[in-house]
């Protein structure tokens, strides 16, 4: 589903040069999720389902507010609730909206073996083009945030698109539009960083000395960022990774295995070619044909 108004700068599993005439002159986009303003109302989850025409199953309660319990092909975002008793003995209810982080250096895209199934636009959004997806699940392994999910129905991978369809026509993502407290904001990455800085100052004035922005360098920064009260302990927020990095397996695949594999394919082809040149084509004679006929007759 290539969108004319969004320019692709990277595609999975292809070395073809991408069109470069157009660029994101308004800058790269980012969504900022201010965890300290979030009340966990799940309006973003509902807006996501409505805009994207998704309907997850009506599940069960397992003793948590998290519903559905996990991301799925039908749930591209969800609130994760964590109860944390701070060293002062006060309780904090840390509610984090989980979903794709839209990494500048996307592990999913790097891992994907199918040409054009995962793309990155000039504005920074990482998008899945399901028509090219082969359902191998490498993107799941490649993602340091455990976000993509393979559909049981069509065996294709799904995740948050950052509403690339809305963004392409100048709208904010559906979750941003619906958020009642302004905990989710959207704009250029620069503006969002600046807004985050103001929020962090406010949080520090309220005693959160370690308040900070989550924009991890290990994946080149992200286009979905968090303002955290405890930026020094992101794992408090339902296991947000401290130093997310693209899995070594993806590095191995892209860095060594894939070139090696390519080399092996080329070597096999070359061996065949040289065999043909040096020895000539493989041919069968009468005796071979007769032996084959006897074998065939033996089978009941």
């Amino acid at each position: 589903m290539a969108l004319q108004s969004l320019d692709i700068i990277r595609r999975s599993a292809t070395t073809l040069p991408e069109p470069q005439a157009r660029g994101a002159h308004a800058g790269q986009v980012a969504k900022l999720i201010d965890v300290s303003k979030c009340i966990g109302c799940k309006a973003c989850q509902v807006a996501c389902m409505e805009w994207n025409d998704l309907r997850d199953e009506i599940g069960t309660c397992t003793g948590h507010y998290d519903n559905p319990h996990d991301l799925s092909d039908q749930s591209w975002t969800l609130m994760r609730f964590a109860e944390y008793e701070n060293p002062k003995g006060d309780l904090e209810w840390l509610i984090r909206k989980d979903g794709c982080m839209h990494c500048a250096d996307p592990g999913c895209l790097k891992a994907c073996p199918s040409p054009g199934a995962i793309v990155q636009y000039a504005n920074g959004i990482v998008d899945f083009h399901e028509e090219n997806c082969i359902g191998c699940g490498y993107c799941v392994t490649g993602c340091p945030f455990n976000v993509p999910r393979i559909s049981k129905k069509d065996h294709k991978a799904y995740k948050c698109t950052l509403c690339s369809d809305r963004v392409s026509v100048g709208l904010e993502p559906a979750c941003v539009k619906t958020c009642p407290t302004g905990a989710i904001t959207f704009g250029s990455k620069e503006d969002m960083q600046q807004h985050a800085a103001e929020r962090i100052e406010d949080l520090k004035s309220r005693g959160f000395d370690q308040a900070g922005l989550y924009d991890p360098a290990g994946v080149g920064g992200t286009h979905v960022m968090y303002v955290l009260q405890h930026a020094d302990q992101p794992q408090l927020y339902s296991g947000l990774p401290e130093n997310p990095k693209i899995s070594a397996m993806v590095g191995l695949w892209k860095g060594i295995s894939k070139p090696l594999g390519l080399l092996a394919i080329i070597a096999t082809a070359a061996a065949g070619f040289f065999h043909y040149i040096g020895i000539g084509p493989n041919e069968t004679d009468e005796q071979d044909e007769e032996a084959a006929r006897r074998e065939l007759e033996k089978t009941p």
């Binding site: 409505e50 309907r55 997850d56 009506i58 003793g63």
Partner: peptide, 23 residues
């Protein structure tokens, strides 16, 4: 609860998805 409105929204699939069962 924020996910529901009184006894109305248990008739609504979206609300039921985000808070499905009595606790």
């Amino acid at each position: 609860l924020t996910e529901h409105f009184h006894y109305w929204t248990k008739h609504v699939r979206l609300n039921a998805i985000v808070q499905p069962e009595q606790f």
